[in-house]
Simulated scan of single mutants.
Amino acid sequence: MIKVDLITGFLGSGKTTFIRKYASYLVEKGMKVGIIENDFGAINVDMVMLSDLDSEMCDVEQIVGGNVEADWKRRFKAKLIAMAMQGLKRVVVEPSGIYDVDAFFDVLYEEPVSNWYEPGNIFTIVDARVEDDLSKQARYLMASQIANAGAIIFSKAQEAAPEQIQESIKRLNGMLEEFHSNRTLTDEVITKPWNELTPEDYERLLNCGWHSADHEKLWFDHNDAFTSLFFMNVHMTAEVIKGTVEKLFADEKCGQILRVKGFFQQADGRWIEINATKDSFSMKTIEQAQEVVIVIGQGLVEEEIRIYFQKKRDSEGYDKQSGNHISRDT
């Protein structure tokens, strides 16, 4: 049987970065691995971030769209069936950050998928500095994910003080209690910085399994609660990008922005990848991409956000946008 590992975590928690490390470890062990990537939104930016892992020993696949649970389950099932005869030892699945874990088990226990696959591990990636002002829907999604996780892995732990880490664990347990889960987190929380993880740590993760913990279900339409807006052909210099993103997060007129990610081509032909939440910002040079920016959040105000990407402010590094396009994912 092929084991399937699920990597959950809220928007911007660091799931894609962790998958890079975890999949690389599996390949180093001689395992042939499949990765199934499904981002929240019409354009799968995270798939681009994983594309360099694609090799003879690591097959990177994507599920396009599928923000509606029924669509995601149908496409996930079809992808697993298509990959069943590739000689894979393990499949690693990264769904979107607004994912309900029940859908994962629904597909794996359904024939014919259940003839080839079985659940392996469930990891939940959590920013080590858990925010105290998350909406009820966001708290529910985090609670439902950590309730089933065999391991909760803190990201950016090196940026958090020990007291912040303890406060984050307390907040996570508070979310479990809020939705009447019968689970309390203890030693399954991994707080070590990722660059310090040892082969022994990865072996622990490889065998952590998952939990069957109850929790109260909160019924809501994920697509009504969370919105994905994308902007094509945004030209912006590296010097301006970070300041613009910081202004977006600070501007209450834009709504509650949870994550900004995308790619910008520079005048010298270089491509820059950005990935940002309210508390973190990363930028790096990559080989090639598609010029797009995706903004994800709750109660987003399309007109206000568009201003930041359509202004002509050449002195600050903007280019005039003649054909900029914005769409709401539905």
Rank of each mutant, 00 (worst) to 15 (best):
I294C: 07
I146R: 04
G14K: 08
N44M: 02
V292N: 02
V301W: 06
I272Y: 10
E287T: 10
N38Q: 11
D100V: 15
D221Q: 01
Q298I: 03
T16F: 01
H180E: 13
F263E: 00
M49K: 07
E287K: 11
A161K: 11
L176D: 12
S168H: 03
A82C: 07
F76N: 06
Y117H: 09
G9N: 08
L50N: 01
I43F: 14
M175A: 06
I36L: 10
Y117E: 02
G41A: 02
M49Y: 08
K73I: 11
I36E: 03
F123I: 09
Q86K: 15
T191P: 02
R270V: 07
N223Q: 11
N115D: 13
Q164N: 04
T227G: 07
D279R: 13
R90E: 05
I152Q: 05
T124K: 06
D279M: 05
A84M: 11
Q310Y: 09
T227W: 00
H211P: 03
K311C: 12
K284G: 10
R259F: 00
E304V: 06
N148E: 11
L108D: 06
A128H: 05
R270T: 12
R259T: 00
V45K: 04
L300F: 08
N173D: 11
Y318N: 03
F123W: 14
W219P: 04
M57V: 07
K217R: 10
L141G: 04
E303K: 13
K79Y: 02
Q321Y: 06
G174M: 02
N223Y: 00
A238Y: 05
R306V: 04
D214I: 09
A147Q: 07
V130K: 04
E131A: 15
I153T: 11
E94T: 06
G66N: 08
D132P: 01
R129Y: 07
A23V: 15
D100S: 10
L258K: 08
L53K: 03
H325I: 14
R306P: 01
E216C: 01
F263T: 01
I35V: 14
G34V: 09
S181I: 13
G14E: 08
W271Y: 08
K156V: 03
S322T: 11
M47Y: 15
F226G: 01
E200F: 10
Q288E: 15
A23R: 09
Q321G: 05
F264C: 15
N44L: 00
A143L: 10
P112Q: 08
R259S: 04
K242T: 04
I294Y: 00
D314W: 12
L141P: 00
Y202T: 09
E196V: 01
S327F: 08
V93I: 14
I7W: 09
K170P: 02
D133Q: 02
V60A: 06
K311A: 11
I305E: 05
G297P: 02
F309D: 07
Q288N: 12
Y117F: 13
L300N: 05
G120R: 13
A42H: 04
H222P: 01
V48T: 14
N182F: 07
